[in-house]
Design a protein around this nucleic acid. Sequence first.
RNA 1: GGAUGGGUUCCCGAGCGGCCAAAGGGAGCGGACUGUAAAUCCGUUGUCAUAGACUUCGGUGGUUCGAAUCCACCCCCAUCCA
Length: 374
Amino acid sequence: MDRFDFKFELLHICAQSGARLGRLHTPHGIIDTPCYMPVGTQATVKAILPRDLKKIGASIILSNTYHLFERPGHALVKEAGGLHQFMNWDRPILTDSGGFQVFSLAASNKIKEDGVEFRSLLSGQKYFFTPEFVMEIEEALGADIAMVFDECAPYPSEYAYAKAAMERTHRWAKRCKESHTRADQALFGIVQGGTFRDLRVESAKYLAELDFPGYGIGGLSVGEPKPIMYEMLEELMPFMPATKPRYLMGVGSPDCLVEGVIRGVDMFDCVLQTRIARNGLALTGNGKHMLRNAAYEHDFSPIEEGCDCYACKNGFTRAYIRHLVKCKEILAAQLITVHNLRFSLRLMEQVRAAIAEDRLLDLRDEWKAKGALD
RNA sequence: GGAUGGGUUCCCGAGCGGCCAAAGGGAGCGGACUGUAAAUCCGUUGUCAUAGACUUCGGUGGUUCGAAUCCACCCCCAUCCA
């Protein structure tokens, strides 16, 4: 494809909260921000059809470089015509770089200056990921947005280590940028720096200079208390280019989504919604409901009164879903997944509307009072 | 009627003199889950209770310092033989 202009329109800033309302243009469509991106690690958002993802308003989904590299292999995805065609999803896709896997599977990996040596947990095979190789994979996958290969320091980390990981991430970001060739794919840099303010600021500044079309904020929500994550966001945000989208990686729960938006985040992704769905936990406007629990045995109301998801609109009751969960029926995962995703996407729709009306803090407080953010 | 194998805590099922309130599953109950090694994982499940105490292994007796475990009789169940 020809060069694509990944224009990010900053439409409005909430007078009450400072939250940003925007619109990101990609080859496969426009994304209204702030947005929540459902995660489809293995080229599928678990337990839901692409058709239904579209229906509930998912404008972009995530997939994973590391997983697809291992299975089925990026060459195969390329042979299929790219990830969109392979998984039958014609809206935007963002691929994570595998940097998080380096961190989350650290026991079996060696981090070196040039890249990371992986011992695959799937096959036992050894691989060596360099920034250049990751770019090759991500280009073969062909997502609208690719992430640079980064190193995500765990929490807690020593200052020296967080600094070293951040600096390595910076060098890798530069190398990613230099080796990235697809003009129809945006490459986002990733801010690191652990839980250290000065590092976060330094990282934001450094990456801003590299001039990426968008920026991930990585290494947060990795076990640190929420106030620390919020503080880091507040510290680094003034140094993020205002005209570029900001993507808080791996976040989050309803409360983190709202608090993130208030602190200037434009994009989020999180596996929580789909994972807890498969474990019987539903998100609602008055808090989480563990539908497996005996409390719902005779509860013939929908997961959430007034919800417009397929499960809630079509007579699927809590009692029935509890039955399905207890029987480990696949339909339980499907129904709760569609609900949790719709809940989160609707939450973001409402957040966007509130930004436009300069009342996001009011909305946050209303939700808090109702328990929606518990 | 005879032979053999069995009857264990909600269920299945180990245990075969003390380390047994009794392995392991299942089921039940509860919890966790935030760039997905996750339709996963963890806890709990006799009673009262802090410790600790008390009642359990078909029934009744017995042997023993001590029995789910050994003995006797009885009651059930399964298979086979008449």
